[in-house]
């Protein structure tokens, strides 16, 4: 037996496969020879790159026509499974769409889901996934029991993406069946928030601000520092909840997980939910007034001080270097 048929829920962004998709395909092919990409939408633009990264087959639902992917893609997956192509393991990216599809599918196949993972191991028929808890201090490994398919989702950057120089994958239509009452949600308008500079979860430098900034106007210091260092600006949940900055900037368990070369935390105390999102940074610099702040426990360089005093001087010094 063993694990011979792995599916990867694959996503497109701006005409190419997302980095999360390529990471999962890369890892899937180390676990099994049979890797299938499942696309909720039209796959013609990405069949080439999906094949290059290891998919030997691509299922595509075709255009979803404004339906949210959760119920639609899960139903299409279930139809393929009922048709006889039954995966042993399905890997999902830990993001909005991945979570919705895996949740719906778990009910349809009556199997559990394991989320927020950073690793997966296969030993014979046993699949074990690992998730960090308590802000990443503890690693819990959980094995699936019962019969396949096993459903698991993985945080961004859990695996490194590497091309397998594979040929373009064959695309097989996996149409969405009639959804009945569950198909009612329809997207009527799409809004894209403008952002400049590198993307938060891909940036080499991330500067984040928290409640210690005192007021929303002071976030401009974080923006300025990020710009000078060619980095992205992030935020703690506290100031996102307070409405200072949009949710898309939130770093943490319920926001983005970042793994930059350097992470600068300004006025962030380091709540567990925040640490989950940034502990993977190679270097961490923290500035906080409170010497007891948990963020200092993970900082490579910690400054016990007032961000309102330290940041302006730091910005000035860096600007002075041209």
């Amino acid at each position: 037996m063993g694990i011979s048929n792995i599916w990867v829920f694959s996503q497109e962004s701006n005409g190419t496969a997302t980095s999360g998709t390529l990471e999962l395909l890369t890892h899937a092919r180390t676990l099994s020879g049979g890797v299938t990409a499942f696309v909720g939408g039209d796959a013609s633009a990405i069949a080439g790159i999906l094949g290059e990264y290891g998919a030997t087959k691509v299922y595509a639902t075709g255009d979803l026509g404004g339906a949210l992917p959760g119920a639609a893609v899960a139903s299409a997956m279930k139809a393929v499974i009922d048709g006889g192509d039954s995966p042993d393991l399905i890997l999902f990216p830990q993001n909005y769409e991945g979570r919705d599809v895996m949740s719906r599918l778990s009910v349809k196949v009556d199997r559990t889901v394991l989320t927020n993972n950073v690793a997966v191991a296969v030993d014979g028929d046993t699949v074990t996934v690992t998730t960090p808890v308590f802000g990443g201090n503890t690693l819990v490994s959980t094995s699936f029991s019962g019969s396949a398919p096993y459903l698991a989702s993985f945080r961004p950057k859990s695996f490194a993406a590497e091309s397998a120089s594979g040929a373009e994958a064959e695309v097989v239509a996996a149409p969405v069946p009639d959804l009945g009452s569950t198909g009612g949600a329809t997207v009527t308008a799409v809004h894209v928030e403008e952002s400049t500079g590198p993307k938060l979860d891909e940036a080499d430098v991330v500067v984040s601000g928290g409640r210690g900034l005192g007021e929303s106007d002071k976030f401009s210091m974080v923006d300025d520092l990020a710009k000078i260092l060619n980095g992205a600006a992030g935020a703690s949940r506290a100031i996102v909840d307070a409405g200072w900055v949009p949710y898309s900037m939130q770093v943490g368990q319920t926001g983005k997980v970042v793994k930059p070369n350097v992470y600068i935390a300004a006025g962030i105390s380091g709540a567990t939910q925040h640490m989950v999102g940034m502990k993977g940074a190679k270097n961490i610099i923290a500035i906080n007034k409170d010497a007891e702040a948990p963020i200092f426990g993970v900082a490579d360089l910690g400054i016990i001080g007032d961000v309102h005093k330290v940041l302006p001087k730091l910005i000035e010094a860096l600007e002075g270097r041209g």
Partner: peptide, 23 residues
Amino acid sequence: GSGQTVASVEQAPAREAGTIIED
């Protein structure tokens, strides 16, 4: 009814202590 069993619980490798200074 649970489709999962916890296989192990381990401490994550700790980060090395950094330099903390007073401003």
